[in-house]
Amino acid sequence: MTFEQFSDGTSFLHRADPKGKLISTGVLSLVIALSQTRGTALLGFPLAFTLVLAARLSWSKLLRRLFIVNSFNLLLCLILPLTYTGGKTVSLIGINLSSTGFFLALLITVKSNAVILLFISLLATSTAAQLGHGLQQLRLSPKLCLLLLFSYRYIALIQQELFRLQRAAGLRCFQPKTNLHTYRTYSYMLGMMLVRSWNRAARVQQAMKLRGFSGQFYSLYDSGGMRKSDLLLSAVLLLAGAGLVVIEILSI
């Protein structure tokens, strides 16, 4: 199972330096997430959408992702008008619906889609390894970067271990139901997964020690620093972020 569905591609966003992308995603998603007015959210969305278009991603995968995220938003659109207290209300077939709640849910939907499209177009177009090295070059705590790189490296392996245990249970006619036997079986599978991960960690640790690991990875993936195009991209995105801040301040 591959987790990174958007990281291979040929667009300029895929080729751009992860450092610039990390900084601009951080700034832009903070601006959009912190915004309180409709104007900022409504302008942030087309910006994020343009970036997704520029990244030339598979539409089916993209829509599947957005569907999952928006199913929660749909729930919010249904719940908030019924439960929101205060603000304007509209009476519909005898039920009081809060229009403030409905507009709030809509604002949340636009904001969350904008931030998620930004995340997909800028960060998910790099692999976690590239981002880890980018963060390392941005002088984030080296230990945290190592944790990120190691976890990323071993997720797929640990998942395979778990699949293997589940397959073994399936071969012994294990059928999950709502009972204590099922929960005990799952716990033992998880426990076994932890035991194997633990032992694997010990072996990897020894192997790295043997090779003189001193807390630093030297990556073969060398982006060659920030090129002119990377600087241009970051500058444009940061300017857009500044523009959104100005609009936010003006419309409050």
């Binding site: 230990k143 190691f150 071993y154 640990i158 709502t178 932890l194 010990a202 640790q205």
Partner: peptide, 29 residues
Amino acid sequence: LKKIDLEQIMPVALLSSAFFVAGLVHVPL
């Protein structure tokens, strides 16, 4: 991060990925 040294990064990282994988396990209810 202050509490873990270089020796302990590996087990913490592996538990972090185990935590990630456990989040993908669905138990019936």
